[in-house]
Each structure stands twice: as C-alpha cells, then as structure tokens.
C-alpha cells in the first residue's frame, strides 16, 4: 500500500512550526560543530599543547583568541577560514536557538498582545545584532 502523504502546499507554512523544527535541527547541528572542533583540535595537537578548559573553549567557539594563551607553537592552522566559518556557524545557530527559546518563554507567560509584539521585535533585533557582532569579531580578530 502506498503511504498517505500531504503535500507541503496543502499543510501550509507556519513560522512557529518552522522555528520548532529549526530549534531541533540547530541543536543537532551544534553537536556536529562541537565534534568538528574537538576532533580538529586533537588532530592539530591539542592533546599535548592545551589543557581541558582551553580545549573546551575552542570546542564551543573555535576562535583563535581561545588558543592564544596555550602552548600551541604555531597559530597558523588554527586561524584558517575553515575555523572562522565553523565559529560563525556556531554563533549563528547558538544565538538563534537560544533567543528563540527566550521568545517561547515570553510568549508563554505574557498575554498582553502589544507587549508580546514589542518584545518579539526586540528579540529579533537582539538576535540579528548579536549574530552580527559575533561574526564581525570572528573575522576581524
């Protein structure tokens, strides 16, 4: 028997449901990014050149400022565009994931429509601002 399906146009697009899905996926993506940072760091010699705390800082944002104070002899492999891209992706997913969580809390507890709308816009602006600042710092540091 062929499976019953409902096409995308039939079931409609809803921003909230999309964000629900995005929140799940972004969590998985962040695991993948963290794993990339961890494996990459170990390959680049972190096992003998870094302590655990520094390694963890690198794993959650693979930015070169997190390796500067360690015993890594050559910073060059840690500053490639690849790592900047990974760090930027991390900033994007972590910020949008976290601030959407904040938005859910706000919408669950606030019932005044105008206050909801105002905070909604505020959270959106905050998200864009934080992503911009984060990415800017990564590419200019």
């Amino acid at each position: 028997m062929k499976p019953r399906t409902v096409s995308f146009t039939q079931r409609g697009f809803d921003f909230e449901t999309f964000m629900w899905f995005f929140t799940r996926v972004s969590a998985l993506v962040m695991y993948a990014l963290a794993l990339t940072g961890l494996v990459g760091a170990l390959i680049m010699g972190a096992r003998t050149q870094m302590n655990l705390a520094d390694l963890m800082r690198w794993v959650f944002t693979p930015n070169v400022t997190h390796v500067q104070n360690t015993n890594v002899p050559d910073l060059a492999p840690w500053t490639t565009s690849f790592w900047k891209l990974v760090a930027s992706a991390f900033v994007f997913f972590a910020t949008s994931h976290g601030l959407h969580g904040l938005l859910s809390v706000i919408e669950d507890y606030l019932t005044l429509p105008w206050l909801r709308r105002t905070l909604r816009i505020l959270v959106l602006l905050l998200t864009l601002f934080m992503i911009f600042v984060g990415v800017y710092l990564i590419w200019t540091s």
């Binding site: 409902v6 409609g12 809803d14 909230e16 964000m19 629900w20 919408e107 669950d108």
Partner: peptide, 13 residues
C-alpha cells in the same frame, strides 16, 4: 486539519 494544528496557537506551543 493539519493546517489548523499548524497555526500560531497550535502544536508549536
């Protein structure tokens, strides 16, 4: 029905 449960005050809440 999926469209209805997909709405703003639907399953995503």
């Amino acid at each position: 029905r999926l469209k209805i449960v997909n709405e703003v005050m639907g399953v995503s809440r």
